[in-house]
Design a binder for these strands. Structure first.
Lengths: 195, 195
DNA sequence: CGCGACGTTGATTTGCCTCAACGATTGTGG
DNA sequence: CCACAATCGTTGAGGCAAATCAACGTCGCG
């Protein structure tokens, strides 16, 4: 049980599980080690797992018709990461999910989670409320980005997630913020000389 | 019970409720009529309701620091609409939610829904699965927009929701698509003369 | 009927992209 | 453990999609 401390603490912020319920949950968790640059989801393959990051960092991205990469999510410890659309609809993925570092994740299959949510009311509540929050925050973020310039987006990310900006390559950050690495480099130069 | 047909059918696509559960649900529903141009959420006020559109049309939008409007969501029959971030966090709204037509909605308070989800497992499952789907589709949509030009975004919306495009003022559509009304007008002209 | 909001059209501007060239890092095979 | 290749980040010149600004017809509503 000790090995599952991080995810159990995360859940405890939303609901409380009995010991029996915790045991049912950890029974469906598979712990996997992923090497840097390895993919856990790829276009064409159905995303079968909800992946919880125990240690390490990931990004999800897709490649558009012009061959350009768009980073959708950057995930570090205690985040879930997957091609969520593929997972929910159980259809082939359109995203790559790639390890940015050597990592450890917890994996739970769609079928196991659905089964457990039908059986354990508290777990249904955990996924309901945590997804509602994730959705609300995602909308909020999309919103604030609408009216920001590229420079303001960079500054906001830097302020909110300084550890992420430090940890991942700049081209990934740029792609996440929806700008080219060249342009972000110019922003960084301007900020460095101004301040 | 007949009056609640639309929302009960919507729920039935996800879970089945016993008669007793349906009665508990409709007991917390308040039916409200909203006049065109009336607001159901406003910045500064906590969004207390999940609003289900029975008849009519709404949009949610926010006004940025430069005074520009950004339409976040357009909702017609059988959609939920609110400042979801405000609703989930129970903090003051940043969005306006405005009726685009004379409308009828079902309103359920945050407290009532939370209480009922803790009591009725099937309702917890309904909100869990429907929110997961909404989240997944929202991400998918944001994704496809990343690599589209303004013209492609307009065409995609026109194809997917022709009834919305017909029903709603063009400046609202333009604001939803993230472009100026002037530029959308030019796109429309070009499309009309080309085809 | 008149006024204000809406949609259109044209001229000009701009934020960010593209392309290209070049140092700095990182990683890898000998 | 070093050498060389590959990738990453930086810098500059030029270009383009969409914004801004402004002017004008038109339609719906009070």
């Amino acid at each position: 049980m000790e090995a599952y401390k991080s995810i159990l603490e995360n859940i405890a912020r939303y609901v409380s599980l009995s010991l029996a319920e915790k045991e049912k949950l950890v029974a469906i968790i598979r712990t996997t080690k992923i090497k840097k640059r390895q993919f856990i989801d790829q276009p064409g393959y159905v995303c079968n797992y909800r992946n919880y990051v125990v240690q390490g960092a990931f990004r999800s991205y897709y490649i558009d018709g012009d061959g350009k990469e768009h980073t959708v999510q950057i995930a570090i410890e205690d985040w879930f990461v997957s091609d969520f659309y593929s997972y929910i609809t159980q259809t082939p993925a359109t995203l790559y999910v790639e390890a940015l570092e050597d990592s450890t994740i917890f994996q739970m299959t769609y079928q196991d989670i659905e089964g457990l949510c039908k059986e354990v009311h508290a777990l249904s509540e955990y996924f309901r409320t945590s997804t509602e929050r994730a959705f609300a925050f995602s909308r909020k973020r999309a919103l604030s980005n609408l009216s920001l310039t590229a420079e303001e987006k960079y500054l906001e990310l830097l302020q909110r997630y300084p550890n992420i900006v430090r940890r991942v390559p700049q081209k990934v950050i740029a792609s996440y913020l929806g700008m080219t690495p060249e342009f972000m480099s110019k922003i960084r130069k301007k900020l460095a000389t101004t301040s």
